[in-house]
Computed example of a mutant assay.
Amino acid sequence: MFVRSGLIRKRPEWSDEDFRRHWLGQHAELAARLPGLRRYEQNHVTDSLQRGFTYPRGPEQLDGFSMLWFDSEQAMREAIRTEAGQALVADENHFIGDLRIVTIDQMEVIEPEADRPLLKRMSLLKRRDDVLPDEFKSEWRQEHAHLVKRVAGVRGYRQNLIVGREAPKGHPVERDGLPIDGIVELWFDDTESLNAAFASPKGQTLMTHAREFIAEITTFLVERHVIVGARG
Rank of each mutant, 00 (worst) to 15 (best):
D130Y: 08
R211E: 09
P133H: 08
V131D: 06
L34H: 00
M107N: 15
K169L: 11
H171L: 12
F95A: 05
I80E: 12
T219F: 14
L206R: 10
D47T: 03
K120R: 14
G164A: 15
G25W: 03
S66P: 03
F220N: 09
R77L: 11
I8E: 00
L132W: 12
R4C: 03
R141N: 15
V3W: 03
F53R: 05
E73C: 00
A75H: 07
S15R: 08
L7M: 11
R121D: 04
L88Y: 00
I217S: 02
R127G: 12
F188L: 04
L132D: 15
I180H: 04
Q74K: 15
E135S: 14
G182H: 04
L49W: 13
L119E: 07
V148F: 12
Q106Y: 03
L24K: 06
S5A: 03
H22Q: 09
V222R: 05
G97S: 04
R39I: 04
I104Q: 11
L125M: 10
Q26Y: 13
D190M: 13
T46G: 04
D129R: 04
L206Q: 01
A32D: 01
F220D: 09
E166F: 07
R11K: 13
E113H: 00
T54W: 06
L24N: 12
M1K: 12
F2I: 00
R21E: 12
A215D: 14
F188Q: 01
H171S: 15
D176S: 14
P112M: 01
D130N: 13
L34V: 04
W23A: 05
P168Y: 09
E174N: 14
R38W: 05
D130F: 05
D63P: 05
E192R: 13
T46N: 02
G203R: 08
F213L: 10
A28C: 07
P112T: 07
R165M: 08
L132F: 13
E13I: 09
N43D: 00
V148Y: 06
V45R: 00
N160T: 06
Q106S: 14
H44M: 04
E174C: 08
V154D: 04
L147T: 12
K126D: 09
F95S: 08
K202Q: 15
L30Y: 07
R81T: 13
V148D: 06
T218Q: 02
D134N: 06
T191H: 09
R33M: 02
G6V: 02
E113T: 03
A196Y: 00
D176L: 09
L206C: 09
F95P: 05
K10P: 06
N195M: 12
I104A: 07
S138E: 14
W187Q: 11
F53I: 13
F65M: 02
R9C: 01
G156H: 06
R20F: 09
F198A: 01
G156F: 03
K137V: 13
V222N: 09
M67K: 13
S72K: 14
F198H: 11
S66M: 07
L24R: 11
G153T: 13
E29R: 06
P179D: 10
R211V: 01
K149D: 08
Q26W: 07
M76W: 14
R121W: 03
E174Y: 13
E108K: 12
R57M: 11
G182I: 10
A197I: 11
T191L: 15
